[in-house]
Design a protein around this nucleic acid. Structure first.
Lengths: 220, 220
DNA sequence: TAGATTGTTAATCGATTAACAATC
DNA sequence: TAGATTGTTAATCGATTAACAATC
């Protein structure tokens, strides 16, 4: 059983659990019912001790000598990750990126339902994307209240991102996935994860420059 | 001057340099010509010693007692990050996501030019997105060779990602930004950075579950 | 029982931060 | 010169990995 009240763990653990969950879910569908940390590690390119340690923060899920029951561990991970329910999610900004996110099928598959997009452009407001309405920003607070939305995705231009964030926080949003290339300031109990696409490309460009000029040792 | 042949540094340093660069570039445009690591740190929410350490891997850019010359440091960082040139980039997959990426204006602004999209769907091939052509996958090798493309972005469905990766590697691509939620295997000298959007949302869902049930200590 | 594999401890590795001598 | 701020060293903190006793 998932254990209560265990102590701190690395920030990277949760994202790995998400990987484990996906792999196990797939194994489960393929009819495989037991797997060792060693075998799972080979499949995912992760050390077996890493897997065992990550799991150990949440409970004892395996059987010594036997490995892990795939169905059981999948169920426990689903619970731990909060995927045993559906999450309504809103997208701020109905530009190309916001629309692509609204249409991203993987999200729905994992229980994240995009329930509305928000924008301020006359042109966009009122339209819909695969049945998801584009609403005006001034309907935000009402919508969040009525639909119990706790998670928002920000896909607006950088200069609007902080303002939109403030509106979200005031309206009661608890978690934000931010795609705008700015570092957002929020109250203590709101969680923000930022994904900066340009920075990722720049890291690759750095690597290419390195290859080009043989100047620096790099990346581990 | 940017220093030659310094030793290993944390994997996180390059992404931070990218942040510093962006902030400095902006300061430079605002006409500010000197800044201390302390002031920059406050602005970016980073410790001043972190900034000085990150920079120290590449050279001595500051003046004791004075801080850093904004224009000069910007120029050096641009060089270090390989942003003193333009990079042709291709996008694999012309679905919603691939198209959104092709239209993402931030990329061009930082010197990354999307020069083509690739797909296999009859329906998509031949069309264009803001003047960027959608080509058939069988033109990949020829295109890469003729246009000296070294960076590719993967925006295809998960089950196609590894195959596409293999084609890219065979065609001579050196760096890949991967949006498919799978862990890609590549030859040693090809650099892959993966961004898994679902995993990010799942990390947020975990946090919300924690809030909901008060079960676990979390996130530092 | 013998073999396999867990969960956990301890060792290692890596990254951040504080502190300060060097120096503009 | 006196004050400010760098670049760097050393201390701290955090994450990964190896090793192994516990046990199925």
């Amino acid at each position: 059983m998932a254990r209560i009240n265990k102590y701190k763990f690395p920030k990277t653990t949760i994202e790995r659990l998400s990987y484990y969950f996906r792999a196990l879910d797939e194994l489960s569908k393929r009819g495989i019912d037991t797997i060792s940390s060693e075998a799972l590690g080979v499949k995912l390119n992760v050390k077996s001790s890493q897997i065992r340690k990550d799991l150990s923060y949440f409970g004892d899920f395996g059987k010594r000598g036997m490995g892990y029951d795939v169905k059981y561990l999948t169920k426990e991970l689903r619970y731990i990750l909060g995927l045993d329910r559906e999450w309504p999610v809103i997208v701020m900004g109905a530009g190309h990126f916001g629309i692509a996110i609204a249409q991203y099928t993987m999200f729905k598959k994992h229980g994240f339902n995009i329930v509305a997009l928000f924008d301020v452009s006359e042109e966009r407001v009122g339209k819909d994307v695969d049945g998801i309405k584009i609403l005006h920003l001034n309907e935000l607070e009402k919508f969040i209240g009525e639909n119990n939305v706790e998670i928002a995705i920000i896909a607006v231009p950088p200069n609007a991102a902080q303002d939109v964030t403030n509106l979200l926080v005031d309206a009661g949003i608890k978690a934000i996935l931010n795609f705008a290339p700015v570092s957002l300031k929020v109250e203590k109990d709101v969680r923000v994860l930022s994904v900066d696409l340009t920075t990722k490309l720049e890291a690759l460009a750095y690597y290419m420059s390195y290859t080009r000029d043989k100047l620096w040792k790099v990346f581990s």
